[in-house]
Design a protein around this nucleic acid. Structure first.
Length: 424
RNA sequence: GGAGGGUUCGCCUAAUGGUAUGGCACUAGUCUUGAAAACUAGCGGGAGAAAUCCCUUACAGGUUCGAGUCCUGUACCCUCCGCCA
């Protein structure tokens, strides 16, 4: 949510931002409500002031316990008047807040303006695409041939889009997660294992709600939710707290199991390991002060960390700077990192690197006290370190050999216990 | 599942239904060669050019001229018991 004051003072900027993000916002109504809200507030405050004067007069006389009926009558009248005014004010406030929720965050000036994914800008590319002098298999065939994933029994036990990772497939997942986790932790990020079951406020605070309710599993009996990413619990880690600026930035690397309903994507990627209801992810999260220049540097740092992990795995990838039309409401700037997936004959999204400004911190009420003893909202950022099994698609397919075996990336060989996965 | 206790500023803490205390921490200033100490002021949010005013005791209602305080409901935290592992 943006500050209404900021909107008022930067109207053109905010209007343009909404337009560029393809969001419809009724700014005329918003400003009208804002003005009504402020004038009503002034009226309410005036009546309250009168009321306060009366009860204070009484306070002075309280020892005498004289019953001044004139004051009481006046007080009752004011109470009635106040009640009416407050009802109107409450209604306006609610309308205003609802409308405020629809105002997206303002993208950074370095973000290209564009309608949709076609407006995204490729800013980096790494690695050579594999050239096969044999017909390459897709990851599903490879996984079945080598008994690395049991899709059928996964569905039998867990339903649509479920799976068992098996043998080296299972080891590979643990290996790739461990590699990323240890690597980022070595850079000084605080390792966390985060809860997947979370309260509603964490989702509202992160900006997943109210928009993405359909996407999130709800445990109705307990009124809890299953988080689709560790961003949710970890960004909410400091919610409601006031931090000392000297402890910032706080950098975290968090493991969690992630759950997504994938509602509305029934037709998409129904086969294989691309789109799943449950997966595991190592996520990087940074909570820092509100110096935008530094925050943007952190966005680059997070991007570099993830790129390094793909380079360790020797997987070809590219980095896209998302255009205004293809980024979410909360983001100020966002990169997607896509890894080459031969069966798709395309790059597929494997990581998402976002800077939110103070959008999330406002909603989660995460503040810090500056050296000047002033309270400010924090900035938040996050980026995927590694998400599996999706990354296994790239590993299986890029590292396959003519005989149907798969070479294990060097950095994972120790953990997996072999340098090549062959048919047993 | 049952019983009880709790939630006031970053932390601690006070308030017979009558102006939300006080301390610590923090910030600025005075003093000092510098620092510490001491002293002074500030230290939740909003409106306003300002004076000033309003709101703020977990949240939402109610009673009252007036609610941190009384009543109702909700959320969250803690303790004990039971059940399960």
């Amino acid at each position: 949510m943006l500050d209404i004051k900021f909107i008022r003072e930067n109207l053109e900027k905010v209007k343009t931002a909404a337009k560029n993000k393809n969001r419809e916002v009724d700014f005329e109504k918003l400003l009208d409500l804002d003005e009504k809200h402020r004038s009503l507030t002034q009226e309410v405050e005036k009546v309250r002031a009168e009321r306060n004067v009366i009860s204070q007069q009484r306070t002075v006389n309280s020892k005498q316990l004289t019953d001044n009926s004139e004051q009481r009558t006046k007080g009752r009248e004011l109470k009635e008047q106040l009640k009416r005014l407050e009802e109107g004010q409450k209604k306006i406030t609610e309308e205003l807040n609802l409308l405020l929720l629809t105002v997206p965050n303002v993208p950074h000036e370095s973000v290209p303006v564009g309608k949709d994914a076609s407006g995204n800008k490729e800013v980096a590319k790494w690695g050579n695409l594999p050239k096969f002098d044999f017909p390459p298999k897709d990851h599903i065939t490879l996984a079945k041939d080598l008994d690395l994933v049991d899709f059928d029994r996964g569905v039998k036990v867990g339903g649509f889009r479920q799976y068992f990772l098996k043998n080296e497939g299972a080891l590979l997942e643990m290996a790739v997660l461990t590699h990323a986790y240890r690597k980022i932790a070595k850079k000084g990020y605080i390792p966390l294992v985060a809860p997947s079951i979370v309260k509603e406020f964490t989702l509202l605070g992160n900006g997943q709600f109210p928009w993405g309710r359909e996407e999130v599993y709800h445990l109705e009996k307990d009124n809890m939710y299953l988080a689709g990413t560790a961003e949710v619990p970890v960004t909410a880690y400091f919610s409601g707290e006031v931090l000392d600026e000297r402890i910032l930035p706080k950098k975290f690397v968090a493991f969690s199991s992630c759950f997504r309903r994938e509602a509305g994507s029934y037709g998409k990627d129904t086969k294989g390991l691309y789109r799943l209801h449950q997966f595991n992810k190592v996520e990087q999260v940074i909570v820092t002060n509100n110096e935008e220049k530094q925050s943007l540097e952190f966005l680059e740092e997070l991007r570099k960390n993830s790129e390094e992990i793909l380079q360790d795995l020797e997987l070809p990838y590219r980095v896209l700077l998302m255009c205004t039309g293809d980024m979410g409401e909360p983001q100020v700037k966002k990169y997607d990192i896509e890894t080459w997936m031969p069966s798709r004959n395309a790059y597929g999204e494997t990581m998402s690197d976002s800077f939110m400004g103070d959008f999330q911190a406002r909603r989660l009420n995460i503040r810090y006290r500056t050296g000047k003893n002033v309270l400010q909202f924090c900035h938040t950022l996050n980026n995927t370190a590694i998400a599996s099994p999706r990354i296994l698609i790239a590993i299986f397919e890029n590292c396959q050999r003519e005989d149907g075996s798969i070479t294990v990336p060097k950095v994972l060989q120790d953990f997996v216990g072999t340098d090549v996965i062959t048919k047993r």
